[in-house]
Simulated assay, not measured.
Amino acid sequence: MSPTPPLEVFCPAELAGQPVFMVLPGGAYLHRADHEGAPVARWLNSVGLNAIVVHYPIAPERAHQILHPAPLTGVRRTLQWLRSGESGLSIDTTRIGVLGFSAGGHLAATLSTGAGETETTDRPDLTVLAYPVISLVSHAHQGSVDALLGPDSSRATRHLLSAEVCADASTPPTFLWHTADDDAVPVENSLSFASALARNDVPFEMHIFPHGRHGLGLATDEEEVAQHSAAGWAELCSTWLTRQGWHPSV
């Protein structure tokens, strides 16, 4: 079994046997934002976790073909490859998480909720979502919808890939964060997913910061986020991961 799509591997020898996160950068399904890839993987390494940046399929600008289901199929195959132990990587195959930003957050959320499944498939063990695209129907990011499904997609098709609809009791524990004044992907996306998790008794932690532009990534230079949390979202997430028992004290 070989992984698809291509990957960047951040699994240093000193983290042998530790959990691993699949990192899914954003980019509206048209490109992949570099600052939400390798820098995030290195941050995960710094808190004791392995990381894989997944270069999932994207739609060439103005392409006429429908991109779905290629991205979701790609990350499902990557999860299966990691879980099988056939990767050759020294990771804990029983603890595989997914961390997604924006459109990558949509991909992470659909992977975690089993969206579009025709049969039972594996899911990650933990999910982290940063300013995610969740719904393709309500408060949707139209650019992501058009790239993934085409501009003429039906409401029924968009509904089937809206993660707040697909969330169920098998959705893994989830950490979410967003900014209230995000003018690209409205905060209602995270709020609706949190509500869906609550309805299904899925443990979650959510942080809504008052201000901050879309696409902050690690937000290391963003006063809008830092001023409302001394260490920013990454520190909050690291604390949450510790409570999940997913990394040693560092």
Rank of each mutant, 00 (worst) to 15 (best):
residue 2 S to Y: 06
residue 6 P to D: 06
residue 6 P to V: 02
residue 16 A to E: 03
residue 16 A to W: 02
residue 18 Q to S: 10
residue 19 P to L: 04
residue 19 P to F: 00
residue 19 P to Y: 00
residue 22 M to A: 02
residue 22 M to R: 00
residue 23 V to W: 07
residue 23 V to N: 03
residue 39 P to H: 01
residue 40 V to G: 03
residue 41 A to D: 03
residue 45 N to P: 06
residue 46 S to N: 11
residue 47 V to M: 09
residue 49 L to Q: 05
residue 49 L to W: 07
residue 50 N to L: 08
residue 53 V to T: 11
residue 56 Y to K: 11
residue 59 A to Q: 14
residue 60 P to I: 03
residue 61 E to L: 12
residue 65 Q to W: 14
residue 67 L to Q: 12
residue 74 G to W: 05
residue 75 V to Q: 00
residue 75 V to H: 00
residue 76 R to T: 12
residue 77 R to Q: 15
residue 78 T to E: 07
residue 84 S to F: 06
residue 85 G to K: 10
residue 85 G to Y: 09
residue 88 G to C: 07
residue 90 S to M: 06
residue 92 D to A: 14
residue 92 D to H: 03
residue 99 L to P: 05
residue 100 G to K: 08
residue 100 G to F: 11
residue 101 F to M: 05
residue 103 A to N: 05
residue 103 A to L: 04
residue 103 A to E: 04
residue 105 G to D: 05
residue 109 A to Q: 05
residue 110 T to S: 04
residue 117 E to Q: 07
residue 118 T to G: 02
residue 119 E to I: 01
residue 119 E to M: 04
residue 120 T to G: 01
residue 122 D to M: 11
residue 131 Y to Q: 02
residue 140 A to C: 01
residue 141 H to R: 08
residue 142 Q to H: 08
residue 143 G to T: 09
residue 145 V to D: 07
residue 147 A to H: 11
residue 147 A to Q: 10
residue 157 T to G: 00
residue 159 H to G: 02
residue 161 L to G: 04
residue 166 C to T: 15
residue 169 A to C: 13
residue 173 P to V: 00
residue 174 T to D: 12
residue 175 F to T: 13
residue 175 F to P: 11
residue 176 L to V: 12
residue 177 W to K: 06
residue 178 H to I: 00
residue 183 D to I: 03
residue 183 D to Q: 14
residue 186 P to I: 06
residue 186 P to E: 07
residue 186 P to R: 11
residue 191 L to A: 15
residue 197 L to T: 14
residue 197 L to D: 09
residue 198 A to N: 13
residue 199 R to G: 11
residue 204 F to R: 01
residue 205 E to Q: 14
residue 206 M to C: 11
residue 210 P to N: 01
residue 213 R to D: 15
residue 213 R to K: 13
residue 220 T to V: 06
residue 224 E to M: 02
residue 224 E to Y: 00
residue 226 A to H: 13
residue 231 A to K: 08
residue 234 A to Y: 04
residue 234 A to D: 11
residue 234 A to L: 06
residue 238 S to P: 00
residue 239 T to N: 13
residue 248 P to E: 10
residue 249 S to V: 13
residue 250 V to Y: 07
